[in-house]
């Protein structure tokens, strides 16, 4: 039930999940050691984000066990789950900043809600986090005044506010210009090293992933298709990964949606 290896942070065993009647995950085994950065890749709708939801306890698996930091997540009650989540940070796809709060108040939110610190102590903590993402100067702006990359950096500062043990990133590079992608990637790496966090990154961005991750997990058909080091990805001949890495339109993931025979359908009348 509990991980044998003491420095295992996340341990998924034979996890299955289906949404309504549609199976999304068909038996996932995955373990992440403390301090590791792993990247999860796979086609759209392949259950990558679902996997993050299961780790964070936002979703319950149909079967299998999800153990995070020694706790069996699906079995936790609400207060225990909230206790665990104080040690988990999550960066959402588009940042999910609170639109009615300033940048400063967004980053101060976890401190104000989760701690009894006086405002005089919260201020320097917030400024330190904002300085780390280079946006101390933007503290008075509203989220609507930020660019996509800046919003993502503020959200990152907010997610790591309570120095979590585990960071989950849901497509952190999507919709960003290459410079912002580079900045976010470097920040993830730096935070990981400085705070000793365990990170799980769900992403499509192969280049940035290969630069960042210690391990790359490729999902296909609701299962772990491959679990390999970044360098091996570049050389592999696995057709699915090649299609993914090289952006080929057709391959194991077909270009055509399943259909009747083309010629016979054209000739029908």
């Amino acid at each position: 039930m509990f991980p044998l290896e003491p420095n295992l942070m996340i341990d998924l065993k034979d996890v299955r999940f289906s949404y309504a009647d549609r199976p999304i995950l068909n038996g996932i085994d995955l373990s992440v050691r403390k301090g590791e950065i792993i990247a999860i890749m796979g086609g759209s709708g392949g259950g990558k984000t679902t996997l993050l939801g299961l780790i964070a306890g936002r979703l319950k698996p149909s079967s299998g066990s999800v153990i995070v930091d020694g706790l069996n997540v699906p079995k936790l009650g609400k207060s225990e789950l909230y206790g665990l989540r104080r040690r988990i940070g999550m960066l959402f796809q588009f940042g999910a900043l609170f639109t009615d709060l300033t940048v400063f108040d967004n980053v101060a939110f976890p401190y104000r809600e989760q701690t009894d610190l006086p405002e005089a102590m919260i201020r320097p903590l917030v400024l330190m986090k904002l300085e780390a993402v280079g946006l101390r100067g933007a503290q008075g702006l509203m989220p609507s005044e930020l660019s996509g990359g800046m919003a993502r950096r503020v959200a990152l500062a907010r997610a790591v506010a309570l120095d979590p043990a585990v960071m989950l990133y849901d497509e952190p590079f999507t919709g960003l210009d290459p410079i912002s992608v580079g900045i976010i990637g470097r920040l993830i790496k730096r935070l990981n090293q400085a705070l000793g966090m365990t990170s799980v990154i769900v992403t499509h961005d192969l280049n940035e992933t290969l630069r960042l991750a210690d391990r790359v997990i490729v999902l296909s058909g609701g299962k772990v298709h491959r679990d390999m080091a970044p360098d091996d990805i570049r050389e592999t001949t696995d057709p699915f990964i090649r299609q993914f890495a090289d952006g080929l339109p057709d391959g194991p993931v077909p270009f055509h949606y399943p259909a009747k025979d083309y010629l016979s359908e054209l000739l029908e009348a």
């Binding site: 940070g89 900043l97 609170f98």
Partner: peptide, 13 residues
């Protein structure tokens, strides 16, 4: 915009 989800993830109901 996942603000409610973000709040839930920060252990705030």
């Amino acid at each position: 915009t996942e603000q409610l989800a973000a709040m839930d993830m920060m252990a705030v109901d």
